[in-house]
Write a protein that binds this DNA or RNA. Structure first.
Length: 231
DNA sequence: AAGTCCTAGTAATATCCGCG
DNA sequence: CGCGGATATTACTAGGACTT
């Protein structure tokens, strides 16, 4: 998946709220949209080098999108819309060895009271897939979430319900960097979510974690990594 | 502890307008 | 009057800050 638009280097100054960051581009103070509602506190640190995209749109309040952050030697993508897209494309092109017998791929599929990112449809069944965006890695272990997420937990319980009703189900953690060797739910930060994820696994929900290769021009799926569900 | 509002952008939907 | 394209409006997202 190529990264479109005019990408420029910049320096992060401050996050004003969850959508807006103050940045320094070409020695000028500007404002950038932050397309990720997580905390990212170990990424968004003053003076850190980042990549932004210049956007020409007079209806927007910010002139840039904050897309990537340099963390030591690793480039981390923070756009929370990308995992969804990249996973959709992977399923659409049948690049993943799961649920191979579907004939149609849908986005934003409604199921009961909730909505899932991707639906794989064949004559007999529907597979519901949820994509999660991971930006946090500590000691080679990718972790989710990076902020307590009551909604995320609720969503997992919905998936468990769908699974118990006979639907195929999957949760894919897309790690937007390539320095992770394992994935684990973030027990210290959100034990309820972690517990729910473990239960989902026990109840037959397919859970996978995939890292990404990222550079200025593009982002692509890299490799599947082992998952540690236990605390 | 639970509920409401706020933020910025996107996508989906609704409305409008000009043209044949 | 009907159609397509352009424009306007609405719904949605999700966690934090705030109020009750």
């Amino acid at each position: 998946m190529s990264i479109k638009g005019d990408i420029q280097e910049a320096f992060f100054i401050k996050r004003l709220n969850r959508f807006v960051a103050k940045i320094l581009v070409n020695n000028k103070i500007e404002f950038a949209h932050v397309p990720n509602t997580g905390r990212m506190k170990e990424l968004l640190i003053k003076d850190r080098k980042v990549l932004v995209r210049k956007v020409e749109d007079k209806n927007r309040k910010t002139k840039y999108d904050l897309l990537m952050v340099f963390y030591k030697d690793t480039l981390v993508a923070i756009d929370s819309r990308l995992p969804n897209k990249i996973l959709y494309k992977a399923f659409y092109n049948k690049q993943l060895p799961y649920f191979k017998d579907y004939v149609e791929v849908k986005k934003e599929i409604n199921f009961g009271k909730s909505r899932f990112d991707i639906g794989l449809v064949n004559r007999k069944n529907i597979v519901l897939i949820e994509a999660k965006c991971v930006t946090l890695v500590e000691n080679n272990i990718a972790k989710f979430p990076d902020a307590p997420t009551e909604r995320g937990t609720k969503h997992i319980k919905e998936i468990i319900k769908a699974s118990s009703e006979g639907f195929g189900t999957g949760i894919f953690f897309i790690i937007q960097r390539n320095d992770a060797k394992f994935f684990s739910p973030n027990w210290e930060l959100d034990s309820k979510f972690s517990e729910a994820l473990k239960e989902a696994n026990d109840r037959g929900v397919l859970i996978k974690a995939i890292t990404c290769n990222i550079n200025k021009e593009k982002m692509s799926l890299n490799e599947e990594i082992p998952i540690i569900l236990e605390q």
